[in-house]
């Protein structure tokens, strides 16, 4: 049995990268907000909290890289040039692969941008 199907023919793959970005953004913001609100009661320190968020970030980046690799495969590993605008099934697949690859790149950068404050933040503001 293959871990990943040979072909992915669903519009949902297009949203994988942005969805991971959104989930990471929400997850980090909510985690820090809840931690800071309950700082006195939380069983973990701020450093542990930060480490946890760094791990979440690495996980999100890995997910996006995987989505990008699948998209690259769908795009035929860059064998054809865009715009892939012929009204054929082949071109639709290639177009979707290319668009997913670009969105994955955007999501990767966006997750990094979200992670910067997590790394540099010092403490909860009273």
């Amino acid at each position: 049995m293959r871990l990943f199907p040979k072909e992915v023919e669903s519009l949902w793959t297009l949203f994988t990268g942005p969805s991971i970005w959104a989930a990471h953004f929400l997850g980090c913001s909510i985690a820090v907000a809840v931690y800071c609100e309950k700082a006195g009661e939380a069983p973990i320190t701020f450093a542990q909290m930060r480490l946890f968020l760094v791990l979440i970030t690495l996980l999100a980046l890995a997910g996006i890289v995987l989505s990008a690799w699948l998209a690259w495969r769908q795009w035929g590993f860059g064998s054809g040039d865009p715009p892939h605008d012929a009204p054929t099934r082949e071109d639709r697949l290639l177009f979707q692969g290319f668009a997913t690859l670009l969105l994955s790149g955007l999501s990767f950068v966006a997750v990094l941008f979200v992670a910067v404050p997590l790394v540099l933040i010092e403490a909860c503001q009273p």
């Binding site: 950068v109 941008f113 910067v116 540099l120 933040i121 010092e122």
Partner: peptide, 17 residues
């Protein structure tokens, strides 16, 4: 732009403390 914005973000957030 990606690299420059990333660097500026790091610099600005680094200044916050």
């Amino acid at each position: 732009p990606g690299v420059v914005l990333f660097a500026l973000l790091v610099y600005a957030v680094w200044l916050m403390p």
